[in-house]
Amino acid sequence: MAIRLFRKKDESDRKIKIPEGMWIKCDACLEIIYKPEVERNLNVCPKCVYHFRIPARERIRAVIDEGTFVEFGEEMESVDVLNFTDTKKYVDRLKEAKKKTGRKEAVITGKGKIQGDEVALAVLDFEFQGGSMGSVVGEKIAITAEVALESRLPLIIFSASGGARMQEGTLSLMQMAKTSAALGRLSDARLPFISVLTDPTTGGVAASFAMLGDVIISEPGALVGFAGPRVIEQTIQQKLPEGFQRAEFLLEHGMVDMIVERSRLKATLSTILRYLSGSGDR
């Protein structure tokens, strides 16, 4: 008995000695896949085309021409205006998120080029407090829309968010109005806005800027909806159908224009931009 236990331990020790994290299990097909290969493949499973969530930085690397991205608004930080504490203090949650991501908030905003065409860009970061929208995220999205307006640029927003940030209360809710109003001005000036939905895009982010694109693109399999599946199940006391609120479901119901795989995203954005550019107010 003791020997067996000992041997078991020995085996597991040996397992750990394999360079850590070189192999990962795909969340969807459960196959063991080689991490560097997945990374080369833009974090898409080479076996089943499952799209892993990726941090905002990588997203920018994947769609913006190298060396063209210029960030703005990175100095903005959230304020604990409500003095909010749940099981943890909001200020501590913010500290943790900053430490984890090395960034001050849940969205990166800036200008950059896509196959030579300049765009204003905002990319939400799910790693930072679930990409939730508080005052700073709302402000940075609005500023990006205003930069697009002033510089006559198309706007692209990548969403990845659980919704409005509860810890900032009603001020978070108001960011939905703020961002949508800024997009209204962009629309009035006939400047294009392309919204890209990634996994997940729900709640107050879905119910504001994310669903307001002139063209709306979704990544395959992304969860997109207003209410979370758990809330719906509790409300209607029914099991939800397979694939409910996934990108394919939204396409079928007419809520998105297309589903585009990550590998084709940059080229697709570039093509659409060329159809829509030059339409700004003259």
Partner: peptide, 25 residues
């Protein structure tokens, strides 16, 4: 807003978002 299957199928989030934009101007 109602959290139901039909509401999601018919675009609850789009309907809300559209009103925010349109009311703003």
């Amino acid at each position: 807003a109602f959290p139901g299957i039909g509401a999601e199928e018919r675009g609850q989030s789009e309907a809300i978002a559209r009103n925010l934009l349109e009311m703003s101007h």
